[in-house]
Amino acid sequence: MSSEANRADRRGIQFLLTLPMLGLLLVPVIGLVFSSSPGDLLAGFRHPLFQPALVLSAKTTLMSLGITVVMGTPLAWWLAVDSARRTWGVEILLNLPICLPPAVVGIALLHTFGRSGLFGSELAMLGIQIPFTTAAVVLAQVVVSAPFYVQAATAAFGRVDGDLLIVARTLGQSPAGAFFRVALPLALPGLIGGAALSWARALGEFGATLLFAGNLSGTTQTMPLAIYTALESDIRVALALALVLAGVSVVLLVSLRAVPGFWMRRCHPVAGFVPDGTRRGSP
């Protein structure tokens, strides 16, 4: 009996130790939810800042997600199947935008694509201006969010058993056929998870966008920038935008948890499927 009581005590202490961190993470979100009345929220939704920012955020993040998936998937596949000796440098470089402060990424983009930047004169000759346009918003989002997708996709492809790809090849598939018919369906839950993470990061992007694209309503003012602007004029808009962003994040989080399990149950009819260990050098 005493050992059971001790165990219960230990569990109680462990739970108490988790409370400060849980509180720190959850209380601000709860505060956000209960900080405004339905009337205030309605006023926020109707404010002229709200709709353009929402539309621009949806448009730019979907574009950046598309670019990230199309360009990031081949990179992730290469990172997963090629030898670590050849890929380690690239893997480290890929993590750089995650580690760099977004403001640094913004300055770097400005000094690459800006008028006096690395490609400034070439772009000017072609009549292309990127900074302070919607394209700059998309570019900033891609740079800060793509590493999240590539990392997740690399891990997902790495878990595909290399022997399955060899079998697919011996059964008549070309390398592309083995990729599309075997590797891609098996890695899909991981790719979806990575895409959701990447999208969430793009949706919340602020610093790089502010420095590289500016804060122009309807052109470069995404939801985080609109929150920043609204804080100086009408807090109700800031709260409405913040709640929408928080709602999208919760939906993404729930999807991230639910999709892989659902996918496994729905689409893996052969018993005993466990994503296998990584094997590099598969064809």
């Binding site: 022997d163 060899i166 697919a168 090849r169 011996t170 059964l171 008549g172 009819p269 052969v270 296998d276």
Partner: peptide, 25 residues
């Protein structure tokens, strides 16, 4: 290329495609 060798390969653990049913495999 492997697809032209006419080699039937059954790896350790049998390598069934877990996302396909028996007939598709």
């Amino acid at each position: 290329a492997p697809e032209k060798r006419r080699v039937g390969y059954v790896p350790q653990g049998y390598g069934l495609f877990p996302h396909l049913n028996v007939l598709d495999n």
